[in-house]
Structures are given as C-alpha cells and as structure tokens.
C-alpha cells in the first residue's frame, strides 16, 4: 500500500516537472522563432526607406515617420511572441 502511494506521488511530481520543462522549451521556441519574422521584415522596411530617401531626400521626415510606423506594425508579432514567452515562464 505504502509503495503504491509513494509511486503515485512520485508520478505526480514528475508530471508537474514535465509541464514546467515543456513551458520553458515552449517559451524559448516562441520567442526565438517569433523573432525571425519581425527582424527580417523591419530590415526590408528600412532598406526601402533608405532607397526612398536616396531618391527623394526632401521628404526624409515623412519617410522616416512612415518607416517607423510600418516597422512598429511589423514589430507587433515579435511583441506577441514576447508576451507568450513571458506568460509561459511566469503564469502558466
């Protein structure tokens, strides 16, 4: 009887351990893979903004503003990844 109880208790602890371990791996993957898209996308925006300023330097202010707004929108998926990673680390 004792041994069965002991086993069940041990299994329960292992279950919690596995969930915790999976949450950590999930957080790492969420933030790691989630950072790829925004990084590349924002780089494309910046490259095209450089091109546009090179073609029409008079509009540098307007183009900088447009670039930053575009990048901010592209950033949003990176922020979603960060939120999910932090939720996995501290809440779940």
């Amino acid at each position: 009887m004792d041994s069965i109880l002991y086993k069940e208790e041990k299994m329960a602890i292992e279950g919690v351990e596995i969930v915790k371990a999976a949450a950590f791996i999930g957080a790492g993957l969420a933030m790691g893979l989630g950072a790829i898209g925004p990084g590349v996308g924002e780089g494309m925006v910046a490259a095209k903004a450089c091109e546009a300023i090179g073609r029409n330097p008079k509009e540098a202010g307007l183009l900088t503003r447009t670039m930053l707004v575009g990048q901010a929108v592209s950033e949003s998926t990176g922020i979603y990844s960060l939120v999910i990673a932090l939720l996995l680390l501290f809440v779940v």
Partner: peptide, 30 residues
C-alpha cells in the same frame, strides 16, 4: 530544459534581426 531553451531562444532570435540589419545596410549602401 530552461538552459537548453535559453540557447535555442537566443540562437533562433538572432537570425531574423541579423538578416534584417543586413538588408537595411544594403539599402543604405546602395
């Protein structure tokens, strides 16, 4: 797993910004 995930997170997380920064530099240099 926390330590392994730390490595995976920084590793994959560095790929996109590295390429993106390069694209921005390419546009500016051009």
């Amino acid at each position: 797993m926390a330590l392994l995930a730390a490595g995976i997170c920084m590793g994959f997380g560095g790929i996109g910004p590295g390429i993106g920064n390069g694209m921005a530099a390419e546009g500016a240099v051009r």
